[in-house]
Design a protein around this nucleic acid. Structure first.
Length: 387
DNA sequence: TCTTCTACCACATTTGAAGGGA
DNA sequence: ATCCCTTCAAATGTGGTAGAAG
């Protein structure tokens, strides 16, 4: 943890908005917060029902030295983008507060001050950049994002601290290439339902059970069916087609037949690695190849893995904060760092790939409570998210 | 002593190479 | 020669658990 402290301190020391990193009142880039919101852009979090169930129990995410995927997977559908404008889609994870927690008597309690957070580490969706049409064609999947507690990790994983609460943030940036990302309009989206506590071992048994019942990789930990384990492929197929809620399908949203955009290569988080021509030509194939995308799930009761797949019952929740120019720069690590303006201000190199913190606040959490459109019915859903 | 973390395990899924047939 | 499909093994992703570390 000392290593993380040192790394975070070094990382954040040039950032005026995070300098008083433990003062939540002073956090926040005030000039950013007041910026215009682009109400046209709509983001719908997929698997909202599942997220809500985890959220109601106090979601936990395992972090390991080698990196662990998030479950539920962060998936969104985008709407309202300019069809011919190119965008980059980024994901980062930021602290919800400046507390450290411990699990005691079946509940999470504050146990002290938080460790400093290493800000500015982004996961760039490998299909970036792509046009609005391409982004809106299918859901955007971040299933390959990995979180780690290894501060020295430099393989594109997002570094978190155990026993701290975090929230993913989605950034949609108008940028035709990685070099124009600094000047593009920023739209940041968060969802309250995605708040989680980073842990090295699950604390809440209910969370464990929920994960086991819904994560296909944890199938081996599920209770055996009454009639014993089914091993034959024929039986397996029967099960897959009928009652596996976590069954990964190739298409998303049956009514619209849209495919999920998969972040098919975690290595391509290297900013600038993926050219537009490549992403354009491979976006469809990557989506098809990604068998971890699946239909929306409508949960009935209990933790039974048997679910009905629907596309229209979830409520799209969006909250956007649009920034007139982006405040990021990037460095040589992956994901990247961006903050051209601050680099310049502090006399640091302003060329791409120079090291710099971002200038989001230390606890940059933008509420999802202001939804541009309260979309609560399938009709409204179709109106907003079908093309 | 307690809390947190790590390494290893068994099991399941995913991925990609190899081979065969059209 | 090319494409499509199937098979299979390796790689990868899970939570459980025992023991180490602080």
């Amino acid at each position: 943890m000392a290593a993380l402290t040192v790394a975070a301190a070094a990382h954040n020391m040039y950032n005026p908005f995070t300098f008083n990193s433990y003062n939540t009142d002073s956090y926040i880039a005030p000039d950013i917060k007041s910026e215009r919101t682009d109400s046209k852009i709509q983001v719908k979090l997929e698997d909202m029902d599942l997220w809500k169930r985890f959220h109601s129990l106090g979601n936990e995410m395992i972090i390991t030295k080698t990196g662990r995927r998030m479950f539920p997977t962060f998936r969104v559908m985008l709407n309202g983008l300019e069809t011919n404008t190119k965008y980059m889609v980024l994901l980062d994870i930021v602290p919800v507060d400046d507390n450290r927690y411990k699990y005691h008597d079946s509940s999470w309690n504050i146990s002290g001050k938080a460790e400093p957070h290493l800000f500015g580490r982004y996961y760039v969706h490998p299909d970036s950049p792509a046009t609005g049409t391409q982004w809106m064609k299918q859901c955007v999947l971040f299933n390959k994002v990995k979180i780690t507690n290894n501060a020295m990790h430099n393989q594109g994983h997002i570094i978190l601290s155990s026993m701290h609460r975090y929230q993913p943030r989605l950034h949609i940036v108008e940028a035709s290439d990685v070099y124009s990302i600094r000047t593009g309009t920023y739209n940041t989206f968060t969802f309250d339902e995605t708040v989680f506590t980073a842990v090295t071992a699950y604390q809440n048994d209910q969370i464990t059970k929920l994960k086991i019942n819904h994560n296909p990789f944890a199938k081996g930990f599920r209770e055996q069916p009454i009639h014993g384990k089914k091993t034959s492929k024929g039986l397996k197929r029967q099960c897959e087609s009928s009652n596996d809620n976590e069954k990964r399908l190739k298409t998303d949203h049956g009514s619209t037949s849209r495919l999920c955009k998969s972040d098919s290569s975690i290595n391509s988080t290297l900013l600038g690695q993926q050219q537009l021509s490549t992403s354009t030509s491979t976006s469809t194939s990557s989506a098809l190849a990604d068998s971890t995308t699946y239909l929306d799930e409508s949960y009935t009761s209990g933790d039974s893995p048997t679910k009905d797949y629907k596309c229209s019952t979830t409520i799209p929740l969006t909250a956007s904060t649009s920034y007139p120019s982006n405040m990021y720069n990037y460095d040589t690590s992956t994901p990247f760092y961006m903050n051209q303006k601050l680099n310049s201000y502090y006399g640091m190199p302003t060329t791409p790939f120079s090291y710099s913190p971002m200038n989001f606040g230390q606890f940059s959490r933008y509420s999802t409570q202001t939804y541009p459109y309260p979309i609560s019915s399938s009709a409204n859903y179709n109106a907003f998210f079908n093309q």
